[in-house]
Design a protein around this nucleic acid. Structure first.
Lengths: 153, 153
DNA sequence: TACACGATGTTGAGAGTTCAACAAACCGTT
DNA sequence: AACGGTTTGTTGAACTCTCAACATCGTGTA
């Protein structure tokens, strides 16, 4: 028995869908124009920059950047060609590989972060009241916790 | 002068980002497993099914399905190969092309819609209170209206 | 030690998206 | 009618992502 959406739910769903499409399109386009990098790659650099020694095991980095192992492997290959990340073999585990953020990568990230934060503020936080921001936080956490429990990524 | 995010905003932003990633990954994966179709293509079929005569000009269809003209052109080519959509030349405008939903396409859409709605309900509406759904609607509309004013897509 | 099982990371092929370039047809003006 | 500028839709190349297959190495067990 399909539980269809009523008219109100339909409207929420469509607004949700359109706003997300437009938002991430816009964010991604601006990031790409300013720094020639898709958002997924930016995420990788961010997570690396936050790790001690600016280095992480590939699988740990994949988890933190919401990426599959395969996707990360391709991404790091591309980031290596740009000179922003390099691979090193893991001393404690011969299977392992570590991704290390280079100085050049850190510099690129610093400049990318400025314009990116500006985008996020313009298109998200500036459009909402303080109460809506709080609500959005709770809504996002509820969805996130549910989806984490499905054990993806 | 970069307006950085404070700690609270950071947390909202990260939860928003992660929930978005996980949600659309999940929705897309389920849709793909059930009906061998990415979400963008599903959107195309939906918009066509809602149009009078189940047909639309390509550019109109692109607007309604949040797609670029190029993307839609590729998408319709693929949907044509599946036999779910066909192209017809536009009588009033010799440049134009119309996309028409075939009977087979309509049947596929009907069955896809069942499982897709179920996904959306499970991963979105079932996770939120009625108040949160209302809030999400207002938040989404605010973002959508702002982003529409930028004139993309 | 030897074996099965699980985890890590990479690879290649196929599919989807983006971007710029392009042909064709419409529109307004002269 | 002819011209320039605009709109429509397509194309091909480059890029990213997904998925399955794979080689490699760790871990527990007999």
């Amino acid at each position: 028995m399909t539980r269809w959406l009523d008219a109100g739910e339909q409207e929420v769903w469509r607004a949700f869908l359109e706003s997300h499409h437009r938002f991430f399109d816009q964010i991604g386009r601006e990031l790409n124009q300013d720094c020639g990098m898709p958002h997924a790659y930016y995420e990788v650099l961010v997570r690396l920059s936050e790790a001690p020694g600016r280095r992480l095991r590939m699988s740990e980095l994949a988890d933190r950047s919401q990426s599959s192992r395969s996707r990360l492997s391709h991404a790091v290959s591309r980031l290596e060609e740009s000179g922003w990340v390099r691979r090193e073999t893991c001393p404690s585990d011969a299977r392992g590989a570590e991704a290390v953020l280079t100085d050049e990568g850190f510099a690129v990230l610093e400049s990318a972060a400025r314009s990116h934060v500006e985008s996020v503020r313009r298109h998200l936080f500036d459009q909402l009241t303080a109460g809506q921001v709080r609500q959005l936080g709770e809504i996002s956490r509820a969805m996130r916790d549910h989806l984490r429990s499905l054990g993806g990524c």
